[in-house]
């Protein structure tokens, strides 16, 4: 489903600010696989997401979605196949437009945009059903401007918009990080629900190790632009936070003061 071959990316090459953000990444995701990605600040997690979505082009290497090399496909074309939710709740929605208009735009993601009304009666019913699954009462506020919603409500809406057209790849970059704990938990739960409902191939970055262990069926640990640890299946189900810390120390030979300092 998703293959990444020999991808490297260096920012500001040849200047004092030179930064190797991705260092020869190789990975393969099967259809329906749900990977959680952890790693310290600056490890290259967001850069990897941006390379997959097409907002960054790697220096070398290929990105294949369904065996099609998309590395030079512009972001707007690739996003027919790739759904995203950003960390910033403001980033995933258009604030001055209504909930139904935002949903209509997401609905057009994998289709050609035409000169017909974006919000039809039939679609409205559709949208209401989708919103109903969030249990946030948004289905009664279709005409409310999205700018009036709380961060958690917006993030739930962004998640719905990113997923309900069933993209081939779903990218979630710390999409619960800006929320309070109870909202974050709600969004985490909704994430698990929609991913399994649509069987989406998903990559989720998080700084919350417990969340990384609870969700998904595979886990990457990134450091200094590399994937240093990759577990799946039963082995992942049995992991606990302490295992992750020990693993990091074993691979990097560095002492970790606490999970907060390195991974959190």
């Amino acid at each position: 489903m998703l293959n990444i071959h020999d991808v490297s990316l260096t920012f500001n090459e040849g200047t004092p600010d030179e930064k190797i953000a991705l260092d020869d990444i190789n990975l393969e995701l099967q259809k329906g696989e749900f990977v959680t990605v952890i790693g310290s600040n600056g490890a290259g997690k967001s850069t990897l997401m941006n390379v997959i979505s097409g907002s960054l082009i790697p220096d070398v290497g290929d990105v294949l979605i369904d065996d099609q090399n998309v590395v030079h496909l512009p972001e707007y074309k690739r996003s027919k196949m790739v759904g995203r939710v950003f960390q910033d709740p403001m980033a995933g929605t258009a604030p001055s437009m209504t909930i139904e208009e935002n949903l209509a735009m997401a609905y057009s993601r994998d289709k050609k945009r035409r000169l017909v009304p974006g919000v039809s009666k039939k679609r409205k019913d559709h949208f209401r059903d989708y919103l109903d699954t969030l249990n946030l009462g948004l289905e009664d506020r279709l005409n409310a401007k999205v700018g009036l919603l709380s961060g958690g409500e917006r993030q739930a809406l962004s998640l719905l918009m990113a997923t309900f057209t069933e993209p081939k790849i779903l990218l979630l970059d710390e999409h619960t990080a800006a929320l309070d704990p109870s909202r974050a938990e709600l969004i985490t739960k909704i994430t698990g629900d929609v991913v399994s409902k649509f069987g989406l191939t998903t990559m989720m970055v998080t700084h919350n190790m417990q969340q990384a262990l609870d969700l998904g069926d595979r886990l990457f640990m990134m450091d200094k632009g590399q994937i240093i640890f990759d577990v799946k299946g039963e082995e992942k189900q049995n992991l606990i936070i302490k295992d992750l810390l020990d693993e990091f120390q074993r691979i990097r030979g560095e002492q970790i003061a606490s999970d907060k300092a390195i991974l959190g």
Binding site: V82, A94, S108, R109, R113, R114
Partner: peptide, 20 residues
């Protein structure tokens, strides 16, 4: 559909680009 996308371009370009 086109009009909504034009409005979103003025409102949140990053978002509408991520919606193809």
């Amino acid at each position: 559909e086109v009009g909504l996308a034009i409005r979103a371009t003025g409102d949140n370009q990053k978002m509408i680009r991520s919606l193809s």
